[in-house]
Design a binder for these strands. Structure first.
Lengths: 241, 241
DNA sequence: TGATTAAATTGATATAGATCAATTTAAATA
DNA sequence: TATTTAAATTGATCTATATCAATTTAATCA
């Protein structure tokens, strides 16, 4: 009989949100337990393979995504093939944006990824019923805006060395925020991706990291793990020489 | 007797929104006529002098601002005095952000300015009563975020020339949007401010503008007005040489 | 209106970071 | 485990933009 379980789709429909791993960090964390089954209905979960595209810059944007598992990078591509990475996303981050224009960037999976997918219309209708959620989404979006403003300033005005130092410190505090160890940090991205994120070239990133190593401001645990001498890094940032 | 007019303050209290010049472009444009007197009560209007600061980076942020008249620039200052301008604001733009952290940038008047000022608490309480407004604010903030992402890509990856070309074209379409003439554009800011906005120096801005002039891609009507050869400018942007 | 101050332009030079190229190291795969 | 492929590092050189400095033009003020 299965009266309701299979009514909508194969995504556990009404129960998936109850067991969601990312809920604690997601925009939907403010939804009360008893409202979750209803909320569950307006999204579906989908898995993506390593390096697959979730959507492409320029495509029609009808969906809003919430990252549940894995990492996603969002980036813009220029006519000449140059790339600017806008962000490396973590579980609980949302993307695709809440508006029905075209995607202004591409979203690509780094490793295996699971996302919740919301149709704009459905999400919009749900927001009408839940002002708390709407306000929370507004807060999160405002926060994203502030971070993006920081990046404009960093890319517009800081030297390569300072951009990298700042990048390391940011990763460290991000890790702390979500309860991971803040010191040896892990760089899940390649040097090339770091460069594309910081508005630099691989070579410059590599050279500057080498310098920081030789000055013992950082220490490589292995090629992906970096131990930070935080006081020295902080002083690097406020150093006007 | 004046039973209600002076109840709250000297800001026309309940009627100022009815006559607001900026309403058509403001986040509050979705508020119905009959709800305006109530909405009017949660903000006050204030005038600011040319070059005065509305708030400073780092100060406690208890207010949300909506620009009614004039222009405002928002910018970040670094320890060494360098500046990164985040935006030149027009009537209908909001700033100060809807969140109670510290201001992450400074807001300064360009010319005489009039602002609507909202206390966070009061605005927050009002949003609870008006989901339409909350959603609209979310939309606008999302839009700001998209624009800021564009700027990260532009500053991170485009040459000085392309940044300037893009800047001119943006001003032109912004003017069109608010119903002003889109071709000779007016540059209300100094070359120095342009440089601080684009992550360049004055000298570079000046030189690149001179080149565009000599190549007849732009033509100066006077030092502040620029006539754009739009097709040529557009092709500059997609030019990979 | 002339004097003062600020803004913009132009030139000469320096340099941070890009580009091109080779090598080393690490990761993926047969 | 050896082989292939990709990522990272390092070197040599170039170039776009910054810096320093002088001049011109425009704006402000007494």
């Amino acid at each position: 009989m299965e009266p309701r379980r299979s009514e909508k789709n194969n995504n556990y429909s009404e129960i998936k949100c109850l067991h969601c791993l990312a809920k604690a960090h997601s925009f939907c964390k403010c939804i009360a337990q008893d409202k979750l089954p209803d909320f569950s209905k307006i999204s579906s979960q989908k898995k993506f393979k390593d390096r697959s595209y979730i959507f492409l810059q320029g495509e029609k944007n009808d969906y809003f995504y919430n990252l549940v598992q894995g990492n996603v990078k969002i980036f813009k591509v220029f006519e000449d093939g140059r790339i600017q990475i806008l962000g490396f996303l973590y579980p609980g981050d949302f993307f695709g944006l809440y508006s029905s224009k075209n995607f202004s960037y591409t979203a690509e999976c780094i490793g295996e990824v699971t996302c919740c997918i919301f149709n704009h219309k459905d999400l919009d209708a749900y927001l009408d019923k839940n002002i708390e959620l709407t306000k929370h989404l507004l807060h999160r979006t405002t926060n994203e805006l502030t971070l993006m403003q920081d990046r404009v300033a960093i890319i517009g005005r800081l030297s390569a060395r300072k951009r990298i130092v700042n990048f390391f410190l940011n990763i460290s505090s991000q890790r702390k925020r979500i309860g991971w160890q803040e010191n040896p940090i892990v760089l899940p991205m390649t040097r090339n991706e770091m460069a594309d994120y910081l508005g630099l070239t691989v070579e410059t990133v590599s050279r500057e990291i080498s310098k920081l190593k030789s000055e013992e401001i950082i220490k490589m645990v292995d090629s992906k793990q970096v131990f930070l001498n935080k006081p020295l890094l902080e002083s690097e940032l406020s150093n006007n020489s």
